[in-house]
Amino acid sequence: AQAAGRGEDTSVIDRQPVPLSASRAGASRPVPPPRRTKRGPILLAVVLVLAVLAGLAGWWFGAGRYETTPGVINMTRAAAEEKVHAAGLGFEVTGSSYSETVPVGYVVSTDPGGGDRILRDGTVEALVSKGPERHDVPAVRGMTLDQAQDALQRSRLVYGHATYRFDARVAKGVVLASSPKAGTALKRGAAVDLVVSRGPRPIEIRDFTGKDADVAQRWFDRRGFEVDRSEENSDTVAAGRVISQTPHDGNGFKGDTVRLVVSKGPVLVEVPKVVGMGTQDAVSTLQGAGFQVDTQQADLYVGLQYVVRQSPGAGEKAPRGSTITIQIV
């Protein structure tokens, strides 16, 4: 039973004894040296080739496929084209631009610029000079200030400042002149000053009320005023004198109208006849006609109270309010 149990749990391996002679023989046999392989030099060569190729690729994509753009600024178009072609590159003029330093027709700029890199067989694009940029001052006389500023802006110039002066013939706010004058060639953005009218110079009006109307007329005529003259009677202002003036003060301008009302003197009234009337009736009649009455006794006064003389006489005209003298007997 025990033997059967061992047979189920374990397995017995029979080992053959190693002869002593064989063990000694194996210990004394020499070990052969490792064999050399050819794979090492091949791998090294491959690595070197790849390194060279990587270097060439880096050079090509970094600098090898590029040329240096020749500098042709300030050269004529023909000379610039010849120089660029000699470098193996194309040349094309794509436009023009103003230049203060480069003469007309000469190269003013390139793309790429001189000294910059450009692909082999690439094309250099160039702009040729149109010379200095200049713009003529526009004619702005007769324009309003706003219109003149717009005209300057359209001409690529700018408005500087305005000075104002009186002008008898040009309305206020209208441009009289420019500085520099019209037609002058200026750089882009240069300032142009303007002279603007303030209109006619104002004239201080003199008051001629109560003064000689003819003197007033001459004074206003010499200064360019229009005089509107009318006449009317006045019991207080002598004939030929100014009763009223409009305007009578302040400032005016040439061409303005001044109205003068000139006195014709008082209203003249026909003197009624009172000779032969009694004193009271004569006085009442004269006062009713607008006169004052001065009653005097005649040299032969006897107390009858009748009018024997009057001055001014009947039918004559006298200023209303004036005095009529009567003599009574």
Rank of each mutant, 00 (worst) to 15 (best):
L268M: 15
A1I: 11
V195H: 09
Y106D: 07
A191D: 10
D150T: 11
A139P: 10
R218M: 06
T246I: 06
G183I: 02
F61H: 12
S23H: 04
A282P: 06
V274S: 05
R36W: 05
G55H: 01
R188M: 03
T37F: 07
Q292F: 03
E232W: 00
D116R: 09
K273P: 11
V170R: 06
S311Y: 10
L43E: 10
S234A: 01
R259C: 01
K130C: 01
V267R: 15
G131I: 03
R156V: 05
V84S: 03
A168G: 09
I324R: 05
A177C: 07
E82Y: 01
G142T: 02
G58S: 13
G131V: 04
A3D: 14
E67R: 14
V274R: 00
G105K: 05
G240D: 08
E316T: 15
A4F: 12
T110L: 02
P319T: 09
Q2H: 08
G88Y: 04
Q16R: 12
L304A: 13
V302R: 14
D193Y: 10
T123Y: 07
R77N: 10
G313W: 01
A3C: 02
V18R: 12
H161V: 06
G255E: 08
V329R: 08
K172D: 14
L119I: 12
F91G: 00
G240F: 02
R77P: 00
L127N: 14
D9E: 13
A22L: 14
Y159H: 12
I203K: 05
R229L: 15
V18N: 05
T325K: 13
G303H: 07
A182N: 10
V192M: 06
Q280I: 13
V308H: 01
G55T: 13
Y106R: 09
V275E: 15
P19T: 11
G142I: 11
R169F: 04
P34Y: 03
S96T: 15
T37E: 11
E82S: 14
G250S: 08
P272A: 02
S263N: 01
K38Q: 10
F291A: 00
V137H: 09
D249I: 01
V31D: 10
R15P: 03
T123R: 06
H135G: 05
V262H: 11
A25E: 13
K187F: 00
A289G: 01
S234H: 03
G58M: 08
P132T: 01
E316Y: 06
T69K: 00
I73C: 00
R141F: 02
R156T: 06
R65T: 10
G265R: 00
F61A: 06
A216M: 08
K273A: 15
V267G: 07
P32E: 08
E226I: 15
H161T: 11
T279Q: 14
T110H: 08
L194R: 09
T76S: 15
V49N: 01
V72H: 04
G26T: 08
